[in-house]
Amino acid sequence: MSNAVLALQDVSRHYRGKGGLLRKGDTLRAVDGVDVTLAPGETLGIVGESGSGKSTLGRLAAGIEPPSAGNVTFKGKPYAPIGSSAWRRQRRDVQVVFQNPSQALDPRLSIADQIRGAMEAHRLDTGKSGAGSLDALLARVGLEGLGRRYPHQLSGGQLQRAVIARALSLSPDVIVCDEAVSALDVSVQAQILNLLQDLQAEFSVAYLFISHDLGVVRHVSHRIAVMQHGRIVEAGPAGDVFASPRNSYTKALIAALPAASPSARRARDAKRRLDFAKV
C-alpha cells in the first residue's frame, strides 16, 4: 500500500538462546517474515494466542526493538538506529499503550505532570496538547478535573484513559495498543474501546491493535491479521475474516469465542453438530 503510514516488509525477529529459557544456540523465531501495512486512520487488529509473536510485532512496529531481518518504514522512511537522538525524536510519531496502565505510569507524578513530561521530552508546548489545552485533553478522555490526581488515586479504567491521553498529547500518527484493555473489567473494556474509536477520527490516528481476545479485536478493527508461530496465517477485512475464515487456526479461534447470548450459543452448537454430521 503506497499511502501506508507504517509498513513492515518481510520482517523477522529472532532470539538467540544464551542458555536460559532457550538452550544455547537455539533460535526462537518470534516474528518470522511478516508483511503488514497500516493506512492512516485505520485500525489493524492483530490476534493470536500467547507466544504467537504479536507483542514482538508491536515492539518492532513501534521501533523499540530492531528487526533481525526485513524493513520497518514509517511514512516511507526506516527508523533511525535505536538510541540515537533521531530515533528518540521519532518516538513521538508512534505511541505505545501497554496492558497494565498502573505500571505504565510513574507512581510519583500526577497525571497532568506525566503528560507534560512526555510533551517536554519532545519540546512541545505543554499548553497545546492534541485537543487544545491539557485540561481539554483530559476532559476529552473522560478525566475532567483529575489532572492533579496521582496514579494510585485512579481506577484501572481511569489510568488507561490517562495513558491514552498521554499518548495523544504528542499527536502521533500511530498508536500501538498492546493488550490495551486486557487487564480491565469487561464493562470498562467496552468504555475504553469506544473511547479509542471516538478518538480515532478526531485525532486521525491509526491503531495497531494487538490482543488475544478475538471479540475485542473484532469490535475495533477495520482489518485483522491472525498470527500463529510468528507468521501471519490469515489477513483481511474484519468482516470477511469472521464471516468466512479460510485458515483452520482462525476457525478454531473463532469457534472458541464465547457466544453473546444463550440462544446464540444454542444456534451455534446446533450448527456445529450439523457440520460434524456432514464430516
Partner: peptide, 20 residues
C-alpha cells in the same frame, strides 16, 4: 514498565534516570 514506556516515548536517558 513505566521506565520502558518512558524510553518508548523518547524520553532522554538522563531524564529517565534523574527524573523517574
Amino acid at each position: 514498565p513505566f521506565m520502558r514506556t518512558a524510553r518508548a516515548k523518547g524520553v532522554p536517558f538522563r531524564r529517565r534516570i534523574l527524573g523517574h
